[in-house]
Structures are given as structure tokens and as C-alpha cells.
Amino acid sequence: MAEDVLILGNKRFSSRLFTGTGKFASKTLIAPMLAASGSQMITVALRRVDPTADQGNILAHIPETVTLLPNTSGARTADEAVRIARIARAAGCGDFIKIEVITDMQYLMPDNHETLKACRILAKEGFVVLPYVMPDITVTQQLYDAGAAAVMPLGSPIGSNRGLEMRAMIQRIIEVSKLPVVVDAGIGRPSQAAEAMEMGADAVLVNTAIATSEDPCLAGKAFSLAVMAGRMAFLASLAGTRKGATASSPLTGFLRE
């Protein structure tokens, strides 16, 4: 099989499992998780300093070979997302940015309208824009026109581990999108990651399920294998289901004539 890489911006990713740095019991688990999972891109967030909290630098726990994907979490408008993105880049985090604009505090559903506005601005400024969106075909096309590098529809609410509740819409987006599709949020089990990849997603982003497991290294590895298995199954174009049986062994008699 030819080398199967995902190209985003000017970078090539052989691992289609993107990870996140949130919710780890200890930051020291992040580097071993990255090594175990082979993930080549990981999200970070930007916050006002809390003088009473641990000020250890999370970036110090991420190997330089791994691409940083700062997110704009906390942004409630396009302007706030743009500001966070510019700060992250000025702070040396590179050109990748996950746009995340949320005003719905119950389900943390993204605001597609503000996200699209931010994408238009940031793509023009040379960012590699990965927008986190509610699955929507029209918005997917508009994000393509706006210069996004990928589209990241949610599987289910952030941190919910509910898997692909948006399955049907994600399937349609995969079918029509001219952008790579990265299923982000809600993937709670390796089988759900595999399912997304079998459907033809280009990558998945998993944070909570890995970070909050009892063994993030083992969980990271399990997700990595699931993503690879799902990807291979997609590339192999598995046959569809049937109503009845079709024999996989010859039905002629063996001992009987």
C-alpha cells in the first residue's frame, strides 16, 4: 500500500489520531501518551494566568516533533477567537488553530456562524484553520470557500463519550466535503473511532476518553490501533451487508457424494 498520509497546511501526518492535553491527572502523562499512541498533533488552550494554580508550562511536556493545535476555547464570538489565535501564533505556537466558538454552556455546541466568520479572517492571515462545527453541509462548503484546512464536525457533546450521535450527518459531510473531515468531540471508545474512520473520516480528535482513562498510554495505543484499523477498512472498501447468508466455503458435499 502506498504511504497513507493526511496533509494539512504544510505538514504531513501519518497518524490520523489527533489528541488533546485537557483533563490529564498529571501533565507528565502527556509525553508518554503521545509516544504510545503515535499521535502527531495535540491541542492546547490559552488562559489568563491563575497565580494560585500550578504555572508549569504545558508546552514543555509536548515533544517538538508533535504539531501544536491551540484552540480558541473560551471564545464566544468570532473576534474573540481571532484574538486568541493571533496571541497563540505570536507566542510561538505555529500556524495551526482549532476554532472553537461556544455560547451554549449546557451542551457546548459550537456556534457555526461565528466560527465561519473567524475562519474567513484567520485563513486570510495564513493560519491553518481547523474549525470545530456542528455537522452542516452548507457550512462545510462555506468553510471550504473561506479557506479552512479541514472541517471538524462533532460526534457528540464534548467530553460525553457518547460516540457518533451525529452519524448520519457526518456520513453526508464525508460524502460531499472537499475538505478533510476530522471527527472531533464525544468519541469515547476505540470502536467509535474505528467507526468514524470506516465511514471515511480523514482523522479523529480524542481527548477526554484518553486523558481520563486509568491508563492514558494504553488508551492512546488502543485508539491509535482502532484508527488504523478503521482507516484500512475504509481503504479496503469493505463490502456491504446482506439480508441472508452467502457461503464462504464450498457447499458441495465432502464425505457425501
Partner: peptide
């Protein structure tokens, strides 16, 4: 003036 740092996030 804003004093910020990177933290864990998904």
C-alpha cells in the same frame, strides 16, 4: 494588560 499561559485543553 493580559497575562496568559497555555493550559491543557481539547
Amino acid at each position: 494588560i493580559e497575562l496568559l499561559n497555555f493550559v491543557g485543553g481539547g
